[in-house]
């Protein structure tokens, strides 16, 4: 299975990506040092970072040992190697055994938290859950309005105060509301913060502490939203956020462009975090469960061919 929408995204850009992996692997070329060097370059341009170098070194060894003989072999081998690195990385948002399940959503500025929350709320509601949103991004101008807009559009409740309110207090109220209204899910939006801002990171800790006052084992999930266009800095983000909040899963946003989100491999190298969802557009339907195979296909450019084959 491949991501339907990734395919759509890639189709849009295929001309521009002629230099991508698909062209190296599908060109009928000889397997040689040059080709492997080009492979390394292409993996790098997909933000795989050091993982790209590792993979190509492994590939070179396998080639010397004649485990890989030609480009077709390489393609199969590469697919396997990439997939191995993502093994066990899918997951589903959990459900608390009783009471509302609290999902805390965090990320750096502009990573796409609010939009992802809207999509997630829609997703959960579609499955028959009662969802409440909590507008704890009280810092950015009009962030509350933005979330309110989505809440209205999806048809879910929202707990909010004005801009400048204490985000932890808003979260506390929201937890109360979620319990009282017997909600299945409470999704807490937080202000974007760079992981280097110690005081803002502490504020995030405080939100967690306050939520726990009401529901001790909450937040049941802390989701980190990562922008797929981010480079190697994504690894630092994942590590730093994990330190102050119990990050339990990732949402990879903006995967509908030409960026491949290869930094994910680097994150997997350092941290054992599952990836729950990928964001693929600005509409509320544009969210899909993460699928490792589809993701690898996307990186390798196979999705494109699959789509073309089926028409």
């Amino acid at each position: 299975m491949v991501f339907r929408r990734i395919v759509k995204g890639l189709k849009k850009t295929r001309d521009k990506l002629a230099s991508g992996l698909a062209s190296i692997l599908g060109s009928g070329r000889q397997l040689d040092e040059d080709l492997l060097d080009e492979l390394e370059e292409t993996l790098y341009t997909s933000d795989l970072g050091i993982t790209g170098t590792e993979i190509v070194e492994e590939a070179k060894r396998a080639w010397k040992k004649k485990e890989i003989q030609d480009v077709a072999d390489l393609k199969v081998w590469l697919h396997k190697a990439l997939l191995e690195r993502l093994s066990g990385c899918t997951g589903q948002v959990c459900r608390a055994s009783e009471g509302p399940t609290v999902l805390l959503v965090a990320g750096v500025n502009g990573s796409g938290k609010t939009t992802s929350i809207a999509k997630l709320a829609h997703w959960l509601k579609r499955d028959g859950n009662k969802v409440i949103l909590c507008a704890s991004d009280t810092f950015r101008a009009a962030a509350v309005e933005q979330l309110t807009h989505w809440a209205d559009k999806i048809g879910v409740d929202i707990v909010k105060q004005g801009t400048g309110a204490d985000p932890a207090a808003v979260a506390f109220d929201a937890v109360d509301a979620a319990v009282a209204r017997k909600a299945d899910y409470l999704i807490v939006d937080t202000a974007g913060r760079l992981h280097t801002q110690k005081n803002l990171m502490r504020e995030l800790e405080k939100i967690v502490t306050v939520i726990r006052k009401r529901i001790p084992d909450a937040p049941h999930e802390t989701l980190l939203v990562l922008d797929a266009t981010t480079g190697q800095n994504a690894i630092r983000q994942a590590a730093e956020f994990s330190e102050v909040a119990p990050v339990s899963g990732l949402i990879l946003s903006k995967l509908d462009g030409t960026a491949k989100g290869g930094a994910l491999f680097g994150i997997r190298r350092e941290l054992d975090l599952p990836i729950y969802f990928v964001g693929l557009g600005e509409g509320i339907e544009d969210l899909e469960a993460f699928d490792a195979e589809g993701f690898v296909d996307g990186v390798l450019g196979d999705a494109l061919e699959a789509e073309e084959a089926t028409g």
Partner: peptide, 15 residues
């Protein structure tokens, strides 16, 4: 442009 952009920065900027 976001300074945290990865390799794709070039693709988008070019376009």
């Amino acid at each position: 442009a976001d300074s945290m952009l990865g390799q794709d920065a070039v693709n988008s900027a070019k376009e």
